[in-house]
Design a protein around this nucleic acid. Structure first.
Lengths: 334, 334
DNA sequence: GTGAAAGCGCTAACAG
DNA sequence: CTGTTAGCGCTTTCAC
């Protein structure tokens, strides 16, 4: 019978009494540091087992300022990109010995600010933060706690991100190399630098070596807005670069329904490599964001800072997106 | 400049000194209860603002045993069903005034047990738990903390779930009503009761009123295993019930590639109504799990228990899945 | 209305 | 190796 709300949860003191030792010995035995005789330790541990002693992280935090946990704060778990990222960050964090948890800010700045306050108040040892926009809503509550910002860039914070300018050029390069000369572009919402950069990078190269058939913007959605559909239908592009996979998938769907074949009639290149990008028809060629490395770097920076205290300069890591060629881009029709 | 790791984070004591009042008054002013003069309160609050006082949840927890937070523990954020559920639980929880956070157990029982220990140790006021399987891995660490188990059923815990037996019958009924007499079934992994029940419910009705063309099992994946593909190709079913949307989507893809039209040649009915089910071609008919209500009920139970202490009997809530008719099922070909 | 003081459960000197 | 003890930051009687 699991539920037993009546009795109090056993404390270290209970343990000490049960085992007939002092508080200190109990503490030492339980968390393996300090010095206790092998005998006593075993005895204490078995007593702990017997009474179901659990340990109280919160109390430890007040005393030591360390909880052994890291928080990941993200804008929207409902966007398929974030669960993958979260998984990688979690793994890296756990491998480094931390308990990991996540909080979703649902794209709301007040909520983001509250979330940050909550986790810092709870006593996490560090936070991995993927801000909603390139804006610091922390109101100072991160001032004294190791933090690394993902993807966005906020002055004063450690940062690990992607070189989107370069990634945009890689995207354009791929299309151009396949022989395309009239290339259309569908960007996502441009209120964040990461989106603006990937588009800017692509556009620059396209205008240098080919021709920009159109450039339109669409929400993060499979559903295309009217002007986007129109551009696709009448823009005369032989290839289109969609700066987010969801949009790319939407474009493929639209094109297919309009009777055009992808990639025979028009090529589509995405960005992000979200789960499912490899499962579409045709499988989507796209630029992969190195989530695993991002997670690893973020945790590396954090452990360094958690351990070393307020170490020197802020770290700025830029990783490269990588082209993954599948079947949604081909040479233009003759 | 946000980073300022040098100075110590201001405490209540700092606040009290800065405002020239006692610890108690500072505490009262900050959390709005107790009795403080309107003047003093304002004065203290402005002082708090000035020195950037934040409050330390961990410390409050040791003293009061209340953190104002709830944890949601789920098996796999990477499964598109969970982010939707999480969102609903989070909203309900926040509406009830709690800070919400999530931990992912990645389908690993040892991890699940650690996760549970971590959140209870951190001092959450309650936990919403979607266990990996119908198995209690908590090792007693939830004994004294309000917990509600989602979807699985674990003896002794409050529970909110879905009547999957009934839901399975609804699925079969729909297919039969559309005129199908040879119905195939693809179940997901049957190691959980929720899956077994939805299949059992459907199968019972099918065998009563029609004929079960085949019953095979597939992993939670768009990719179909060989024997599943074979059943689909040669089973002679005019309709198939896939007990999970991912599998249903995989079935549609397989059928389409094999040159069969859905739903003209064969109908496909899914289960879950994951995000994207409405975006497939054709849009998937499926059974919708009432995530919003699940979340709301879970939170309701929790707030009741957090407030009322160890109230009476355990609550058992069963909700109904609802058929959502889209375009993937039609009458069988003549 | 305000302050002094006693802890919450735990850790970490320090003494023995 | 083990025990005593002084807090960590905060809340909450209980006097004043």
């Amino acid at each position: 019978m699991p539920r037993d709300p009546g009795s109090r949860r056993p404390t270290l003191k209970d343990l000490a009494r049960e085992a007939g030792v002092s508080l200190a010995s109990a503490s030492y035995a339980v968390n393996g540091n300090g010095s206790v005789g092998e005998q006593t330790r075993a005895h204490i541990l078995s007593a702990a087992e017997r009474i179901g002693y659990r340990g109280n992280v919160a109390a430890r935090v007040t005393r030591t300022g360390r909880s052994g946990t890291l928080a990941l704060v993200v804008p929207d778990m409902t966007n398929p990109f974030f669960p993958s990222l979260a998984q990688m960050v979690f793994r890296a964090g756990r491998d480094a010995g931390f308990g990991m948890f996540l909080v979703d800010t649902e794209g709301s700045e007040p909520l983001e600010q509250k979330a940050l306050a909550m986790v810092t108040g709870l006593g996490v040892d560090g936070v991995v933060w993927f801000p909603i926009r390139d804006k610091d809503t922390s109101a100072g509550c991160l001032d004294r706690i190791p933090t690394v910002v993902l993807d966005r860039t906020l002055p004063g914070y450690d940062h690990v991100g992607v070189d989107y300018l370069a990634a945009g050029r890689i995207a354009a390069r791929h299309l151009i190399d396949r022989g395309h000369r009239r290339i259309g572009m569908i960007s996502g919402p441009c209120d964040v630098a990461s989106m603006r950069d990937r588009c800017a990078g692509a556009q620059a190269l396209i205008e240098e070596e080919a021709e920009l058939a159109f450039r339109v913007e669409n929400a993060f959605s499979l559903d295309l807005e009217p002007q986007v559909a129109a551009a696709l239908d009448g823009g005369g592009a032989t290839a289109v670069f969609a700066a987010a996979d969801v949009i790319a998938l939407g474009a493929i769907r639209h094109l297919t329904r309009a009777g055009k074949r992808v990639p025979e009639d028009v090529s589509v290149l995405g960005f992000d490599d979200i789960p499912g990008a490899d499962q579409s028809t045709p499988p989507l060629s796209t630029l992969e964001i190195p989530v695993a490395e991002i997670g690893q770097h973020a945790i590396d920076i954090l452990v360094r800072n958690v351990a070393g205290g307020a170490g020197g300069a802020t770290s700025l890591v830029q990783l490269d997106a990588q082209l993954v060629v599948r079947e949604s881009v081909a040479a233009p029709p003759l």
